[in-house]
Design a protein around this nucleic acid. Sequence first.
DNA 1: CCACTTCATTAAGAATTGATTAAGAAATCC
DNA 2: GGATTTCTTAATCAATTCTTAATGAAGTGG
Lengths: 232, 232
Amino acid sequence: MPDTILIVDDEVEIADLIDLYLQNEGYATRTFYEAQSALDCIKQEDIDLAILDIMMPDIDGFTLCSKVRELRSFPIIMLTARDDVVDKITGLTLGADDYVTKPFKPLELVARVKAQLRRYKKYNDEPAKSEALIVIGGLEINSKTHECSLDGKALKLTPTEFSLLRILASNQGAVMSSDELSQEIWQDEYFEKGNTSITVHIRHIREKMGESFENPRYIKTVWGVGYKLDNN
Amino acid sequence: MPDTILIVDDEVEIADLIDLYLQNEGYATRTFYEAQSALDCIKQEDIDLAILDIMMPDIDGFTLCSKVRELRSFPIIMLTARDDVVDKITGLTLGADDYVTKPFKPLELVARVKAQLRRYKKYNDEPAKSEALIVIGGLEINSKTHECSLDGKALKLTPTEFSLLRILASNQGAVMSSDELSQEIWQDEYFEKGNTSITVHIRHIREKMGESFENPRYIKTVWGVGYKLDNN
DNA sequence: CCACTTCATTAAGAATTGATTAAGAAATCC
DNA sequence: GGATTTCTTAATCAATTCTTAATGAAGTGG
């Protein structure tokens, strides 16, 4: 039995586009162009994941998200028009599990749907990128407050340094190449520049963490491959 | 087996340029200068990613994109002449996954191709995930963390050594010639060099595993043929 | 047993890769 | 708009890693 995805977006073409893609991937879909009937649907049917637009005429996505959360605990992915940080933080607080900004790439959305479903079904799976608080040994990274501390002592990181560390931490143990890291940090803009600066940022982070390249406690260099962060 | 990239652009030089670059990267290519035969190709062959020009005489790229999407769900990268925001939104809505504006830097396009394929495969290649950890007897190879251990004791392998061992392990029991191993490790660059160094790498691995050539526990030499890894 | 092939071993230098540093761009903040 | 922070670039340096080539040992067939 395929997973059922709920789609709510007042922009008909967008909703239908998502619908098409998810159906092509073998999911069952329930598509609504306004919030109220979507809510009714949730009460009656078994939904595995919801994709909610934030900007909607009758109810805004945040309210809808809250209402859904009162009823169910399946993953929620929010669609937002711009890369609005405030929206992002608010949304995560309200119970959304992931964020996609419009205009989005359909296959990326599909990928995130798959990722969320996988994570939801297997609790032991790696933590999601949107996980607010990541703790690895004495290292704490709070995406919500954008704070970071090592052994209880606050680390003052620049934006790029923070992103880099968060990405490494949320893929704990996994080796990531400079290419992958660049792509994660800068999304699409990265192609216009090289990725040599990753090593510099790594160095700065290590410096602030009091780590040396020869004897790292957290950030390890894997020669010829990339970097990884773990607590071994 | 390399990924196959479909290229459609009525400007012959552009199409051929892209073709050349992608072939140099080891991709298989199908290049067309008009849309119709490209569509036929998609129906018949296994394509992993498409690069479509927007401005074309017979069908415009948007229409082509939609038609492709009705059939397949691999990533699509669109080429646009101007940096037109409206086009971008429209294109993404229609199902393109990325955008490159002309004139573009060939290596940037290549980078985007790689990025899209990586993202797509990450969520669509189940086998890749399950192969992350290979266990043969007391030998453990973790591709994700790039760690390797024998009887619980960590082995510190160089990149090439790791690749070599991983390839042998993932073809457990099968004899592989030096040629095959070279090809697997270095993909296409391998033709530029010989493959005599395989024996040296094998030796280093054996040394680190505490194996001797006369009495190997895992890596066996098959005279006149190659090497194999098993637990007999 | 002897030529011939194939693999093992070794060591050196060539090539690659990451670290480090500093300076100039770019972005951000007041 | 000027000052400050942050980021990127480029050049140099240090280390790791790879390849080559020479020599020796082991298998193979006559």
